[in-house]
Design a protein around this nucleic acid. Structure first.
Ligand SMILES: [Zn+2]
Ligand SMILES: [Zn+2]
Ligand SMILES: [Zn+2]
Ligand SMILES: [Zn+2]
Lengths: 163, 163
DNA sequence: AAGGATGAGTTATATAATAACGTCCCTCAC
DNA sequence: GTGAGGGACGTTATTATATAACTCATCCTT
């Protein structure tokens, strides 16, 4: 196995992923003076349950089940809005789904490689991608406010599996 | 006015845009041996009515009105699927909307600059963007099947207007 | 004319997201 | 204290986007 592969694509202690993500979220929210309430934290935890994007209604189903009672769409969407606003998750428009941000501490754009087979979404941190996008925008005098890059294809594992 | 700006951002004879797009579509479909039926052609024409992405239900509303009888969603979505499949339009996932392809004759990815204010969508043809995306994908052994780049911001005109 | 493929009409439903309003609870000025 | 204000969340209803399943008409092909 290629040791340089992103963690999302490799066998790893995923409990540690979740734990670190939640700790980072706690730290970030306290630093920002915003409240990571129990509900918001639980939604973030659910999103982090895997490296695959999760739909709002999937989250809703889990909450409804474990809460015994209700849980309506606005409950989930408000939590998601909070998490998005504080850069703790990203929204993948091509999937209508959400995924935990792997480096929430610094501002960055949403660049993902999404496996068509196993649905793993790999967050890419490539300044070169942003640089070329900025160059193209500058050429037509366009002022960038937000970039969204979603690439679909096959991750390393699924390529190997289908060989 | 900057003469190097993309046509979508400038004053121009838009009837010509539409006319050329429909002619190109006729040519392409006949070359491919597929049928650009009246309905499909009409939907393409509606999408080309501006350089702003158009929603499926906007198309549906127009068709319903002019047809007298109510057109139903599948009618529109089937036409859209055909147009997408033959690369005559692109789908903008971040807007759930569709826009005419400016160079359908050769295969290419979906790269757009979308103005937050006037909603104009500028199709970008930048091999450099694809190159950097490919480099990032190769670094993690990911095989690309399709790229989606949607950048939101302010087009040149709207920057000038809000100054 | 029979058979098969394609395009499109029709009805119903699935999936995703938001609007509008109410309640609880905490905090802060008075 | 108390009550005004605001944030978080519950609740109900609705809007927006997309697809399933079935039907029929048309047009080739044989
Ligand atoms: Zn993990
Ligand atoms: Zn991130
Ligand atoms: Zn034009
Ligand atoms: Zn195009």
């Amino acid at each position: 196995m290629n040791p340089s592969l992103p963690i999302a694509c490799t066998e790893h202690d995923h409990n540690l992923c979740v734990h670190q993500a939640l700790q980072a979220a706690d730290a970030l929210c306290s630093r920002q003076g915003v409240r990571l309430t129990a509900l918001r934290r639980r939604v973030l935890e659910l999103i982090w349950q895997s490296h695959k994007p999760l739909g709002a209604y999937d989250i809703l189903a889990v909450l409804s089940q474990e809460d015994g009672r209700r849980a309506a769409p606005p409950t989930v969407y408000r939590a998601l809005d909070f998490l998005l606003g504080n850069h703790l998750i990203h929204r993948l428009a091509s999937l209508n789904a959400f995924i935990g941000c792997t480096h929430p501490a610094h501002a960055h754009q949403s660049h993902f490689l999404i496996c068509r087979v196993c649905h793993t979404a790999i967050e890419v941190d490539s300044p070169a991608i942003s640089a070329t996008i900025h160059a193209a925008a500058e050429a037509v005098d366009f002022r960038i406010e937000g970039e969204m890059v979603e690439v679909v294809g096959l991750c390393a594992q699924c390529q190997a599996a289908t060989k």
